[in-house]
Design a protein around this nucleic acid. Structure first.
Length: 268
DNA sequence: CTTTCAGCCTGACGGC
DNA sequence: TGCCGTCAGGCTGAAA
């Protein structure tokens, strides 16, 4: 499940190999993703130079001489560099070959991801909240936007209008570190606690990105597996197991159709 | 306006 | 062994 740290790790791993390179060929073997891959994309991007690569939320943006390509990894997507001529694996849907011989493969079993080209922007990016690792995102913002809202705090911080890139894993872990129950109404949390929460969101994301950095070399000829899951998870995926803090059995509930684990003693 | 929920998709896993 | 049901989850768009 690529969350923001994995997308950022992908960006950093791929960037040095693709920036300022020209696209020799882009081959789509299965364009049936979250949205159909842009019609005629191979012809549009052929011969164009990639002028830069950036990230907004969990979207990767390949800037071209004309327009840009927006790539999303969805639930099961990955992007990695392979040896030229390496055999195609099942679920390798798109291949981008560059003039320097670098070959980038997009692999996505569930096909929840996206690969689109546009020269007039992407509506998906229009109403996104701030990046979590910038100063624009702080406890004050969470506090102000949550007033009078009855929604549980966990789905609230996972809402892309509030702040982007906080998926199920990191929302769960940040709430545990902050001692906040995930099902508490967002509007009934103090400014002070939101400041704590914002800090912990930044912390868990930042440490995951740093651990991901240790596996960057695996983007070349590697297995493409993310390394940051090695980080200690206190609650995510641990329903019924003892709390790392007080040893009480962790409770598992569903919030907004997502599994949610927390400690009823440590989180209030 | 806010909130909820179906649907998209495949692989892993448990029960029989 | 294999078949079937359930779960996992980001995001959109429609419904309440």
């Amino acid at each position: 499940m690529p969350e923001l740290p994995e997308v950022e790790t992908t960006l950093r791993g791929v960037a040095p190999h693709v920036v300022n390179q020209s696209i020799e060929a882009l081959t789509v073997s299965n364009g049936s993703l979250r949205w159909p891959v842009t019609e005629g994309i191979s012809e549009i991007v052929r011969g164009q130079r990639i002028t830069g690569i950036t990230r907004r939320a969990k979207y990767l943006l390949f800037e071209l001489e004309r327009g840009s390509m927006m790539v999303h990894l969805g639930m099961s997507g990955s992007l990695r560099l392979v040896d030229d001529g390496a055999s195609r694996r099942k679920h390798d849907h798109i291949e981008m070959r560059l003039a320097n011989g670098v070959c980038l493969r997009y692999h996505d079993p569930r096909r929840f991801g996206a690969w689109l080209w546009s020269d007039s922007g992407f509506p998906q990016l229009d109403h996104l909240g701030p990046e979590p690792l910038t100063d624009e995102f702080a406890g004050e913002r969470l506090f102000h936007l949550s007033r009078k809202r009855k929604m549980a705090v966990k789905p609230f911080i996972m809402d892309n209008h509030i702040v982007v890139g906080v998926g199920n894993i990191y929302a769960s872990e940040a709430l545990f570190r902050s001692g906040i129950r995930p099902d508490r109404a967002a509007g009934r949390i103090s400014l002070q606690r939101y400041q704590l929460l914002a800090g912990h969101i930044k912390e868990v994301l930042q440490s995951a990105i740093m651990q991901g950095g240790t596996t960057l070399r695996d983007f070349v000829n590697g297995n493409g597996e993310p390394g940051y899951f090695q980080q200690t998870l206190n609650v995510y995926g641990r329903g019924g197991e003892p709390c790392h803090n007080c040893a009480k059995h962790l409770k598992e509930i569903r919030l907004g159709q997502r599994s949610t684990v927390f400690c009823t003693a440590c989180q209030r």
